[in-house]
Design a binder for these strands. Structure first.
Lengths: 153, 153
DNA sequence: GCGGTTTAGTTGAGCGTTCAACCAGTACGG
DNA sequence: CCGTACTGGTTGAACGCTCAACTAAACCGC
């Protein structure tokens, strides 16, 4: 309090609004496409992807939450839905009796395999096709910087 | 169908994941701060901002939806909440009997004025402080390109 | 071992968003 | 004019997320 607010200058203002518009439009579009074509929101798609990338197609709930950048609570609710859909099931963790493992089922893997081509095509069309290689590189550096900045503090 | 999927190469993969992580972390952080400090989600803050920028502090529901990048339905629900909070009220549109005007109340303006400094500080801390001036410029160009690409098609 | 703290995960209520259905009111084609 | 299509906006149900409260198990110091 008492400290002067460092307001945004016109360039920053413009950047911030453009970023808001673009990222929201991008995520909304991809989310809607995934919901329409695969019957799952983007957050659930990401969960299935992470599970599919592990050797045994299974992860501790906490690690999965970390990997997908979501809260424990969110993941717990999501896991309940995914389990009801038959795409994952839960197992006891052998090394920690508090723990739960989320395991990708064959049906889950199939759902992911069916959804992936369309979704990747969407990411390419809506994001990468619009940017030059230099811009893709810039976006990567900016995003990595921001991610460090946000999770590191 | 039958067309080969254009999968993401490693650089694109890395860029896409970094973007997802960063933009989600940024928006989640700002949303949480705004909810904690001002009792409103970021989407509602944006609505109040747009209204405050018009000469008469009022906008047609459709224009407001357009400006904030939201669906009519979403805006309608949001307006109901904002009206219940006493931050806006609705008026009949004089030129189109179907239309509704959302009007920012004095209480709404006060709530916005109270929320703005903290929120702007958050945007600066979490976004602009982490980036070089050149990166801010790059982010602006990338975002504007994407916004055009997404809303133009 | 025993009590206090931390960690893992779940649960339920409340909120915001989406989607589809719907009711006006306006515009258009004859 | 009259019917049809379109536009502006609202509504309710279903869904996903957040937050706070909670249970259970592990850790930690002594």
């Amino acid at each position: 309090m008492g400290v002067m607010t460092r307001w945004l200058n016109p360039d920053e203002q413009r950047t911030w609004r453009a970023f808001l518009t673009a990222s929201r439009a991008l995520m909304d579009t991809l989310d809607r496409e995934l919901q329409r074509d695969a019957g799952m929101p983007h957050a659930y798609y990401e969960i299935l992807v992470r599970l599919s990338e592990t050797p045994e197609r299974r992860l501790r709930m906490s690690d999965l939450a970390e990997a997908t950048g979501s809260s424990r609570s969110r993941l717990s609710h999501a896991a309940a839905r995914l389990e009801a859909a038959g795409w994952i099931h839960r197992e006891e963790c052998p090394t920690d009796r508090r723990g739960q493992l989320a395991v990708l089922t064959d049906a889950g893997f199939a759902a992911l395999a069916a959804a992936a081509p369309g979704h990747v095509e969407g990411v390419r069309r809506h994001l990468f096709d619009a940017l030059s290689p230099a811009q893709v590189d810039q976006l990567r550096r900016i995003s990595e910087t921001l991610a460090d900045h946000l999770t590191g503090s």
